[in-house]
Amino acid sequence: MQAIRVKTSSSDTAERSRKGPGRDLLPLLAGVATVVGGVGALLALADVDSPLRGPFTLFFLLAAPSTAIAAALRGLEPFGRVLASLAGAVTLDMLVAQGMLAVHRWSVPGGIVAVAALSSLILLSASVRRRRDRTTGRRTP
């Protein structure tokens, strides 16, 4: 029996080397970040005394709005997108805190819920805009 050999180009070899064990690392990190943020929000809402409550809640307060803002700013370069989304997250957190203090309704659970709601609205509007852009792109000849 004769062996059949297939010649591979150097680009095929380079592509295979890129498909190593680290190719699934980004979705894994995104999942871990989602779990950490969710646990932080739950710990703050349930008022659990845990040493992880502070760091995890702070992570949620920064990650939720910055992820939503980054989804809305998909046209920027990656570094500018990260910088703008982090600045927007801090701004959103400060505006929520200032608004709650102005109306004398400050509470930790209320702040967590307000930041989560505003982040969800930003993410929803970005998703709707992206879907609308895809739909109008197909109709044009």
Rank of each mutant, 00 (worst) to 15 (best):
V6N: 03
S120R: 09
L62F: 13
R5K: 11
T13E: 13
L58H: 11
A126E: 00
L95R: 06
L26D: 10
R16I: 11
T34M: 15
S11R: 12
W106V: 10
T13Q: 10
R130Q: 12
A3I: 06
A3D: 14
A33E: 06
R132D: 02
S120V: 15
D133Q: 09
P51D: 08
G54I: 10
R5V: 14
P55I: 05
R138T: 11
F79I: 06
V128K: 07
A89F: 03
D12H: 13
G20N: 02
I122D: 04
R134M: 02
S50D: 12
A3E: 13
A14H: 09
R132S: 04
V48L: 02
G37D: 06
P21H: 00
A70L: 06
G31Q: 04
T67A: 15
P141Q: 07
A33I: 01
L26T: 11
T67P: 06
G20E: 03
P27C: 00
T135K: 11
T135M: 08
G110S: 02
A63S: 14
L124D: 05
T140F: 11
G88Y: 09
D93P: 01
P78Y: 02
M1C: 07
Q2E: 12
T57Q: 09
P141D: 09
A70P: 03
F59R: 09
A126C: 00
E15W: 02
L95A: 15
A87V: 05
L26S: 03
T34A: 15
A41Y: 09
R74P: 04
L61W: 06
R81I: 00
M94L: 14
G38T: 14
L124I: 03
G80V: 07
D49G: 10
T34V: 04
A117P: 04
E15P: 00
A70F: 09
A64V: 09
M94S: 12
V103C: 02
G54M: 12
V113Y: 06
E15Q: 12
V115M: 06
M100G: 04
G22I: 01
R132G: 01
A68N: 06
A84F: 10
L73I: 08
V35S: 05
R131F: 10
G38F: 03
V39A: 10
L25K: 01
G40E: 11
A44Y: 07
A46L: 15
R5D: 11
A116Q: 06
L86V: 02
A72D: 05
G38K: 02
A117S: 15
V115F: 11
G22H: 00
S119E: 09
A84N: 08
S50R: 00
A41W: 09
S127A: 15
V115W: 07
P27K: 04
T57G: 10
L123Y: 15
R18I: 01
A46Y: 04
R132L: 05
